[in-house]
Design a protein around this nucleic acid. Structure first.
Lengths: 182, 182
DNA sequence: TTGATAAACGGAGACAGCCTCCGTATCGTT
DNA sequence: AACGATACGGAGGCTGTCTCCGTTTATCAA
């Protein structure tokens, strides 16, 4: 890749992070291009679809997911505490930007999206939690990682769209946790 | 209201129902106007915001909600069956159009939206179910109608966006039901 | 029936966002 | 330095939203 191309690529991703944080996932891409000081053509050549840009933005984010899963797994106490800790972390991770929860959760079932690979990181991390719970015999049969991701994703979407505070979201997660455990 | 105005109003609503059913909630409003045989100006005078149009479309829908609640309340058997029946009905009711679950569920927390009044019908119906369950002592403390609406709304949004089949959605609802019951 | 008046109509067009095409500029190599 | 490959970027087509305002239509009183 030519150095000027690399420079523009990086700059676009950097600016996109900023713009999406300010305006949510449906911010104008022309605006991103303008702020990055490139033409729209350049942006669309590097990132033909909006999701390709999100994909690039989320590269570093994946490390954080694994990190958060490790941290949750280190939780002391009963299985329910572990699960709740992970659910909270999960919501926080996918709620970095307005519109993020919807985007990510719907990518769970859209293997064509570039985001889908990110979801695998997410379900993978959830799976570690599932295994731990299953080993403790605490999990209700039939509850797997994808099920959990869908459920908690749904809560995250609602929280995101309604701007719900943690004090409202946490109880929702606890109801769900109780439904998942035996 | 002048009779021609009334005629156009009704026609727009009728056509909108059709178009939204075909294309989901973000169908083009100019398209609706065109099909209804009116200018965009006429449409926007009657319905300044998209939600105003949805609001009008949902007038008759509210009756169906109460009806469905009655039917669920007539369910024989243990409380869990009643709850699951209502959750399924709830999802079906808000999933009439693509994008509907998101619209309706986010209106739960947006009292400014014209849709909010429709939500009250929905939470009201849910409340009847809640009362029945509470009377039977089957409900976990702290679980109220709004909590339930948010949770099931979240599942409906995910199902809608991911085009999930009933066979996937129903188990999600059951996990939630288990979380709500003691 | 007719004419006045208010009400409603509807389409042209301003504006914003998405995305493409292609002439121009830049890079890297010989 | 010169050339070919690569990348740039902006003009502009397209679609959808929404408004403004000249024209039409309904209604009612005379």
């Amino acid at each position: 890749m030519r150095v000027d191309a690399q420079r523009n690529y990086d700059r676009i991703v950097e600016v996109a992070r900023e713009v999406f944080r300010e305006q949510g996932y449906d911010a104008s891409l022309d605006e991103v291009a303008k702020r990055a000081g490139v033409g729209p053509g350049t942006l669309y050549r590097h990132f033909p679809k909006r999701d390709d840009l999100l994909d690039a933005m989320m590269r570093s984010w994946m490390d954080r997911v694994d990190e958060a899963a490790e941290k949750a797994l280190a939780t002391e106490g009963p299985p329910r505490d572990l699960l709740v800790a992970w659910l909270r972390a999960y919501v926080a991770l996918i709620s970095l930007h307005k519109g993020g929860p919807a985007k990510i959760t719907s990518a769970l079932d859209d293997s064509g999206s570039p985001i889908a690979s990110k979801c695998r990181t997410l379900t993978g991390a959830t799976d570690k939690v599932v295994e731990r719970l299953a080993a403790a015999g605490a999990l209700r049969p039939g509850v797997d990682a994808v099920t959990i991701c869908r459920l908690v994703g749904g809560v995250a979407v609602v929280a995101d769209q309604g701007d719900l505070p943690e004090s409202t979201v946490f109880p929702l997660l606890e109801v769900m946790a109780d439904g998942m455990l035996r």
